[in-house]
């Protein structure tokens, strides 16, 4: 299985010397898939990494500093879509495009609540198919934050990244003359010292929790690494290794 490819012994002896490559490997095993259910794969965080790493060094498995991610607590979403509006306003998203959406699922046969809302956005994949496909590295994974960014000047508009993205997270933005996508508000907020994203700030129900997964004190870390509620990701089988996690509660 996947663990075999890792030299866990060496890594244990020398945790501070974990190379970038090894870190990536760890990231891959950090969360183990324990089941599948409609629309997502459940991750368990009683992970192999926990067994391999000495206490406290678990953060080593996240290769970026900060390792930005978002945890979406779906059951809290009331479908007001203020996040979508907030995102559009903050990032000049035109009416014909979106960087984030709130999808709606209606299950008439369900007992009690019959509607569920599922916010979606770019998963800032650790193994981003869009980045692999782009001929001119107009889209790239930022080495520091792990955010998948755009260099608008380089984009030739071939749109292969749009076809490659398993989350339909990209669209061609006429005004920018390039493909546009969520950058966790890096341009408009994080790079200017901001700590949150526009969608998170706009959400009245605290559905979207944004933060640094490599920081054990962060909310996202605790939400991802708790055992009470299942944590899952969308479209796990495409091997894009997403950084948007879903949970309840």
């Amino acid at each position: 299985m996947i663990f075999k490819s890792l030299d866990a012994e060496t890594m244990l002896k020398n945790p501070e010397k974990i190379s970038e490559m090894d870190r990536r490997e760890f990231l891959k095993i950090g969360l183990v898939i324990t089941g599948v259910f409609a629309g997502g794969s459940i991750l368990s965080v009683a992970s192999a990494a926990d067994k391999i790493f000495p206490n406290g060094s678990i953060a080593e498995k996240y290769p970026y500093r900060p390792h930005y991610c978002m945890v979406i607590r779906v059951d809290r979403c009331i479908g007001c879509r203020r996040c979508v509006e907030g995102c559009a306003a903050a990032n000049a998203v035109p009416s014909y495009g979106w960087r984030t959406l709130v999808l709606e699922k209606v299950v008439l046969q369900a007992v009690g609540q019959k509607r569920e809302f599922i916010p979606v956005l770019c998963n800032q994949c650790n193994n981003p198919p869009c980045v692999r496909a782009c001929p001119v590295t107009a889209t790239y994974k930022d080495k520091k934050t792990g955010i998948v960014m755009m260099d608008n000047q380089k984009c030739i508009g071939c749109k292969i990244c749009m076809a490659a993205c398993p989350y339909e997270a990209r669209y061609y933005n006429e005004e920018r003359g390039a493909v546009d996508k969520c950058d966790f508000c890096f341009e408009t907020s994080l790079s200017r010292g901001g700590k949150s994203t526009a969608c998170q700030a706009a959400c009245p129900a605290d559905v979207r929790v944004f933060g640094d997964l490599s920081d054990p004190q962060s909310r996202v870390y605790r939400l991802v690494h708790q055992l009470q509620q299942p944590v899952w990701v969308l479209k796990k089988d495409t091997d894009a290794k997403p950084n948007i996690f879903y949970t309840k509660g």
Partner: peptide, 17 residues
């Protein structure tokens, strides 16, 4: 078909993937 074909001529060489 490409939105910015001229950039292709430049970045195919300057920024290859």
């Amino acid at each position: 078909e490409l939105e910015n074909p001229l950039r292709l001529g430049i970045y195919l060489f300057l920024s290859p993937n």
